[in-house]
Design a protein around this nucleic acid. Structure first.
Lengths: 191, 191
DNA sequence: AATTAACGATACCGATCTGTATCTCTTGAC
DNA sequence: GTCAAGAGATACAGATCGGTATCGTTAATT
């Protein structure tokens, strides 16, 4: 395994353990044991555990937003349908055995101080996701794209939190139905 | 301070520290240091840290459901207005400096194993809150009270998650507006 | 008032935490 | 082929984790 592959493998292992056990509970020793890579190597790539957490969050930020976009693009062309398709993306995520809630919300729970770099990274991710919803709402020609995006975002976050506890992927479908009705309202208001 | 007061003080301190720093990060040593009570005393009242966490969750379960009910009862008499008033309760919660997200969702993040007693306690709380919404929806004479309750619940959880990161109490108002429109739909469907 | 039993503060236990120092080995350049 | 430089594994360091044993003190009962 090459140097860069080790770094990637380390990150993947860290992401999995952070998501399953939380950021404090998943220790560096556990991550290196699971990945089979030496601790020295880990600390060569990541100066501190905080750096590792930040890298794990950044990786998941890019990956999740890219894959949601890809999923949505192949699911629909109409912007309104794209907004609704984001909930199908959620449903697939919830059905994954590795789903244990939103890793960003979990990070915000464990590092809730607003001055913490980890909290900052979480806030950044959430802003980017919201911006994506707003982009879709704007493309749909909705009058108040920002407000619509916030509502879609609320339903997303709610679905994730509910599914985290109920472990029921159908939660996404209920959020989608609510979104559909709210979007219909928005459209008819300016028909 | 009497024995029972010490136990209560210990619990209050634990609740505050768990919410601010998370369940793993808030160690027993920190809790006793902050409360000024001996470790022996803590372990006389709570066999393990897990017991303390469970007690903290149960306390917050009772307290939060009781206070939400009290808030709602003094805010409105009509069941639909009561459902909407739950969002005003959220707004007041978000505005509290001690707000750091839902302590139950945070617990589920750190103890995500479905066999964990802590996870079980979280699931119980969430079921009870949902049952309250369903009770209100039923009292409102809505056809599908269960589905309505689930939607209200989605908006609640979403508002909490969003407010945890944005620290914006107005989030509750946006969720309330969405709820109002969805409830109007429900009512007009059977008008 | 004497005795007993429970309680609280301190010191300590082994395990685990993040992070580092050491020492060996591999690998690439000349 | 030789030497140098960087990477890996191991052992360890200091701090903190959850939990306990010891011991002094308080408080209730007879």
């Amino acid at each position: 395994m090459k140097r860069i592959e080790k770094k990637a493998h380390l990150l993947e292992t860290a992401v999995a353990l952070f998501n399953r056990h939380g950021y404090h509970a998943a220790g560096v020793d556990r991550i290196i044991a699971e990945s089979g890579i030496a601790k020295t190597t880990l600390y060569r790539h990541f100066a501190t555990k905080e750096d590792l957490i930040l890298a794990a969050l950044r990786l998941q930020d890019e990956r999740s937003r890219d894959s949601m976009r890809a999923f949505v693009d192949q699911a629909a062309t109409d912007p309104i349908e794209k907004l609704l398709a984001t909930f199908d993306y959620l449903e697939a995520w919830f059905a994954d055995r590795a789903f244990h809630g939103c890793p960003f919300v979990s990070a915000a729970s464990e590092y809730g101080d607003e001055t913490d770099p980890i909290f900052h990274e979480v806030a950044l991710h959430k802003r980017l996701v919201l911006a994506y919803f707003e982009e879709l709402a704007h493309a749909a020609g909705l009058a108040d794209a920002k407000r619509v995006a916030e509502i879609i975002n609320l339903l997303h976050e709610g679905a994730v939190a509910v599914a985290q506890v109920t472990r029921d992927p159908a939660t996404a479908g209920r959020a989608k139905e609510a979104a559909r009705r709210l979007l219909a309202d928005e459209q008819s208001a300016f028909a």
